[in-house]
Design a protein around this nucleic acid. Structure first.
Length: 493
RNA sequence: GAGUUGUUAGCUCAGUCGGUAGAGCAACGCCCUUUUAAGGCGUGGGUCCAGGGUUCGAGCCCCUGACAACUCACCA
């Protein structure tokens, strides 16, 4: 290594050279086991000012900042629990150690064994330490003050986002906790988690374009699953009464603030239950998550908007919402009058639509205004073709659509268990998709129908967009903020 | 798929009317034994997203493309 290289102002070159410097001093810059470290937050919490004897500190983390004052250096390191300051003194460390300590770069990961004290300015700090180089960083870190703001880098290089932004770390801790608490809630109530195939010969259970792949050994086209429904129902036929699956679905569609092509879905099925059962279940589950993860049933999103999960959630019929918006006589209007009224309200309605479609256009105006948790129930049959009809009104189906913050977050059904009716409706659905891109995924799943013909108990089922729940509970404005590695286009090539 | 905006040093950002590319932090050198956005003095660092065009001259104007964000549409 020449003097020229030594004195380069190119940071990448300097850091590479420093790897050699550590080796020349007999130190492996990519060190080994250091699992005796204590979380920095724990060290700080247990520190006692009046304690007479030395309070030992063993801690490891990434170097965030360094303030070098010649014969003394202050270094702040970060671990998962927070940050802690190190106080390196020439006198305490000895000439050789001190000289090496000054060569620690921002971004390096070090382990430290020393003693705790409180500085004049009041900060709990480690001094009189020995340190180990655990990992030499070759790349410069994002700036300490402004942090990393570039949205594209935050998504493409999530680790840099996590190093730099505590808000981002906290969101992903909360996401992990939400998923843990969903499982805990369901398991405590006796639901069994199951795993069903992710690659399906027929992509059923929802209307969406699937990703396709090829299974070489079988020489067969396969689809990444778009839903788990058809397999879970087969488990009800098999005699499991309370099952759920919490994992990824894939839909080959556009990305948006609300959509990522692979997303985490929960589906729960309960034999002998119905739509009401599932409403009670999801309400309890989301409350549980809010309380345990956020410590409150009131989640503030902004100065104007706080989501209230505590009050009993409104349960309102679809037709009631329409009447609230469009007048009590809505359902007595002629089609022409409906179109006129809908247009007055600002909905897109025209002659080509039928009454149900016109009503749905009006509903589309209502939904964004439903900020607090609201179960919309008893939808027109045409809107949800695969659910069981209401026993008192064959034009309606016994379902709910849970709306929070103006967005649909969870549908629930009284499931259809009549195999003859189910076959008819699947065939109708297939006809509607003939000639469209959904056609190939709409094929009749004979294996599923065969299972139904053996007898599926009456059941309630629900789905939940877990990513969207995470957005609601963390206040994240886009789905990319709660997915660690969101899908982005390749930059190179 | 359409529209709008953005892309300049490792990071965060300026860049006037088209006239030799700027700051803070980071880096490098020197000083400094309680700092914490440490401080002081000094130094180096640029494919201005890419490719064309206009011009004596383009970071800036025009065209095409890449990627991203936002809005809308689509999708559930």
């Amino acid at each position: 290594m020449s003097d020229l290289e030594q004195n380069s102002t190119n940071e990448l070159v300097n850091r590479r050279n420093r790897v050699d410097m550590w080796r020349e001093n007999g130190i492996d810059p990519y060190g080994s086991r250091f699992d005796e470290a204590v979380p920095s937050a724990e060290l700080k919490a247990n520190f006692k000012d009046e304690c007479e004897e030395d309070q030992p500190a063993v801690v490891a983390g990434r170097v965030l900042t360094s303030r070098d004052m010649g014969k003394v250096v202050f270094v702040t390191i970060q671990d998962p629990s927070g940050t802690i300051q190190l106080f390196g003194q020439k006198n305490a460390l000895g000439e050789e150690q001190f000289k090496l300590f000054r060569k620690v770069d921002i971004g390096d990961i070090i382990g430290v064994t020393g003693k705790l004290f409180r500085t004049k300015k009041g900060e709990i700090t480690v001094r009189e330490f020995e340190f180990k180089m655990l990992s030499k960083s070759l790349k410069p870190m994002p700036e300490k003050w402004n942090g990393l703001k570039d949205i594209e880098i935050r998504y493409r290089n999530r680790y840099l986002d996590l190093i730099s932004n505590e808000e981002s770390r906290e969101i992903f801790r909360q996401r992990s906790a939400i998923i843990r608490e969903i499982r805990r809630f369901l398991e405590d109530k006796g639901y069994m988690e199951v795993e069903t195939p992710m690659m399906h010969p027929i992509a059923g259970g929802a209307a969406a374009r699937p990703f396709t792949t090829h299974y070489n050994a079988l020489d067969q086209k396969m689809y990444m699953r778009i839903a788990t429904e058809l397999y879970l129902k087969q488990l009800l036929v098999g005699g499991f009464e309370k099952v759920f699956e919490l994992n990824r679905n894939f839909r080959n569609e556009g990305v948006s603030k609300q959509h990522n092509p692979e997303f985490t879905a929960l589906e729960v099925y309960q034999a002998f239950g119905d739509c009401q059962t599932m409403m009670d279940l999801i309400e309890g589950m989301i409350r549980h998550c809010a309380q345990t993860v956020r410590g409150s049933l009131h989640i503030k999103h902004s100065d104007e908007k706080t989501l209230d999960f505590e009050s009993p959630w409104r349960r309102v019929e679809y037709s009631t919402l329409l009447k609230e918006k469009a007048g009590d006589n809505w359902f007595e209007l002629s089609k022409e009058e409906m179109i006129k009224k809908a247009q007055e309200l600002g909905a897109h309605a025209d002659d080509s639509m039928d009454e149900v479609q016109i009503g749905q256009e009006v509903y589309d105006l209502i939904e964004p205004t439903l900020i607090q948790p609201t179960f919309v129930t008893r939808l027109p049959r045409e809107l949800v073709p695969l659910a069981k009809r209401c026993t008192d009104d064959a034009a309606l189906v016994d379902v709910y659509e849970l709306v929070i913050d103006g967005k649909e977050i969870s549908p629930g059904y009284t499931e259809l268990n009549d195999p003859i009716d189910q076959r008819l409706r699947l065939e109708e659905q297939l006809k509607r998709t003939l000639g469209t891109e959904e056609e190939e995924s709409g094929k009749i799943d004979e294996q599923f129908l065969d299972a139904l013909e053996h007898g599926m108990p009456p059941a309630g089922g629900l789905g939940l967009g877990v990513d969207r729940l995470c957005m609601l509970l963390t206040g994240a404005p886009t789905i990319r903020d709660i997915i660690l590695f969101p899908q982005l286009k390749n930059k190179d090539q």
